[in-house]
Amino acid sequence: MQQSQAMEDKVISAVRDFASSINSGSKVVADMSVLIDATSQLPLASFDYWERLVRSEFSLALTHSIAPKWKFWSKPYELLTWLDLISWDGYKREKTLRTLSGGAPNTFFFSIAVRRLNDWVPQVREAAREKLPELAKATDPEYVVEALCIALSNWNSWGRIEEVDKNTLLQIISEEDIAKTLRSKLISSAAGPMPSLFSQLGRTPILDGKLEEIADFAIQPSVRAKAYRSLFEGRIAWIEGRKWEWTDIRYCEGRLKAVVSERKLDVQTPIFDLLKKSSEDRSSIVRRISAEILIRELEGLGDEVKELAEKFASDECNSVSERGRFALKMLDEAERTNPS
């Protein structure tokens, strides 16, 4: 709690100092180094909170900061900065997007730009669609990838983003430098929403040639499991959104149902090779999927299938061993029905 409060105080102080430098009357671009340092340390999982805080403090500081009295006769000079992307004024947000040049100074500021795809003003969303690819190319790929990870994990909850806006992000994802960094993050991240990120990245072909590598080396078991399932099933599925489904309209009862889309894959690795590798995975999550696929594919596999079934049946995880025993039972029934 104390650490969070210290971080908040640091951000507020940096925002106020930056606003004060803008209202100093100078036409020189204000120094953002302290603000960049403060926002670089923010946890992006709480991005909504930090964006609201920065917007409120920046607006308040600009209002209370007094311009030099000796310049009362001069026309105010409008200095647009990255913080104006979260201005209360939609015209200013749009103008800022169209006039920004160079890359974002950190993940926080690129995330602000990405979130304009969900802006409540259509003209701002249009400006974001046009400008984001250019900003992404000029920004450090690490910053872009961090921002995209947060956006892709949450964009199904964005009420105003349209399909054309999503395509803008998918276009950025498909850039080779970004795609390479995203694949590396999927494999090396020990925490974070990597499983949902994997599914959303499946909308594009950037993972297709690397699925076995992800299945073998991803740190998070759920990511390895998704990679193996995609290889087994020859498709990648993702949640497109959610729609309301009535369960009993008489009592106005219902639920939100996930809308799932998928894309077919061209898998070259033989299924038995995938089964052997996944059966030896250190996580029961992956071994359970392997045992499930074994049951589904029993008839199409060779003589070694019983050995695999016995291996699953002796697994220390109950959900895996249950499937192994069921596979052995099916094999015994098949032998009795069709004795050789």
Results as ranks from 00 to 15, higher is better:
Ser13Thr: 09
Leu79Arg: 13
Val34Ile: 06
Ser59Pro: 01
Gln41His: 10
Arg55Ser: 12
Ser24His: 11
Ile22Ser: 01
Ser13Phe: 04
Ser56Trp: 11
Thr39Ile: 06
Ser33Leu: 09
Trp50Phe: 07
Ser26Thr: 13
Ser74Thr: 08
Ser20Lys: 15
Ala61Gln: 05
Trp73Pro: 00
Ser33Met: 06
Ala38Lys: 07
Ala19Asp: 04
Ser33His: 11
Leu80Cys: 04
Thr39Met: 12
Ile22Ala: 03
Val29Gln: 13
Gly25Ala: 05
Glu8Pro: 00
Thr81Tyr: 15
Asn23Asp: 03
Ile12Tyr: 02
Leu53Val: 05
Glu57Phe: 11
Arg52Phe: 03
Thr39Arg: 06
Gln41Cys: 01
Lys10Asp: 08
Ser26Cys: 08
Pro76Lys: 06
Arg55Asn: 09
Asp37Tyr: 09
Ser59Arg: 14
Phe72Glu: 07
Met32Glu: 11
Ser24Lys: 08
Ser24Gln: 06
Lys10Cys: 03
Lys75Thr: 08
Arg16Lys: 14
Leu35Ala: 03
Gln5Thr: 08
Val15Ser: 03
Lys27Asp: 04
Ser26Glu: 15
Leu44Met: 15
Leu80Glu: 08
Val34Glu: 14
Leu60Asp: 10
Pro76Gln: 05
Gly25Cys: 10
Gln41Leu: 14
Leu80Thr: 03
Trp70Ile: 09
Phe18His: 09
Pro43Ala: 09
Ser13Ala: 13
Val34Gln: 09
Glu57Lys: 10
Leu80Lys: 11
Met32Thr: 02
Tyr77Ala: 08
Ile66Phe: 10
Glu8Asp: 04
Lys71His: 10
Asp84Glu: 14
Trp70Cys: 04
Tyr49Cys: 00
Ala19Met: 02
Leu42Cys: 02
His64Tyr: 15
Glu8Met: 08
Ile12Trp: 01
Ile36His: 10
Ala45Lys: 12
Lys27His: 13
Ala38Asp: 06
Arg52Ala: 04
Met7Ile: 01
Gln5Asp: 13
Asp17Ile: 03
Asp9Tyr: 07
Asp17Ala: 12
Ala30Gly: 08
Ala67Asp: 05
Ser20Asn: 12
Leu79His: 13
Ala30Asp: 13
Ser26Trp: 15
Ile12Gly: 01
Ser56Gly: 08
Ile36Glu: 13
Ala30Arg: 07
Gln5Gly: 01
His64Cys: 00
Trp50Tyr: 15
Phe47Cys: 01
Asp84Val: 02
Leu62His: 12
Ser21Tyr: 05
Phe47Val: 02
Met32Val: 00
Lys75Cys: 05
Met7Tyr: 00
Leu60Pro: 00
Phe72Ser: 11
His64Glu: 13
Phe47Glu: 05
Ser46Tyr: 12
Gln5Lys: 15
Arg16Gln: 14
Leu60Phe: 10
Ala38Asn: 07
Pro76Ile: 00
Trp73Lys: 14
Ala38Tyr: 09
Ile36Lys: 12
Leu53Glu: 05
Gln41Asn: 15
Leu80His: 08
Ile12Asn: 02
Thr63His: 14
Gln5Pro: 00
Val15Leu: 04
Pro76Arg: 10
Arg55Phe: 01
Asp37Lys: 12
Leu42Glu: 03
Ala30Val: 10
Ile66Val: 11
Glu51Val: 01
Glu78Ala: 06
Leu60Tyr: 13
Ser21Pro: 00
Asn23Val: 01
Val34Phe: 04
Ser46Met: 03
Ser24Glu: 12
Leu62Arg: 14
Ile22Glu: 07
Trp73Phe: 14
Thr39Val: 11
Ala30Leu: 12
Ser40Leu: 03
Lys69Ala: 11
Ser65Met: 05
Thr81Gly: 13
Leu53Ser: 02
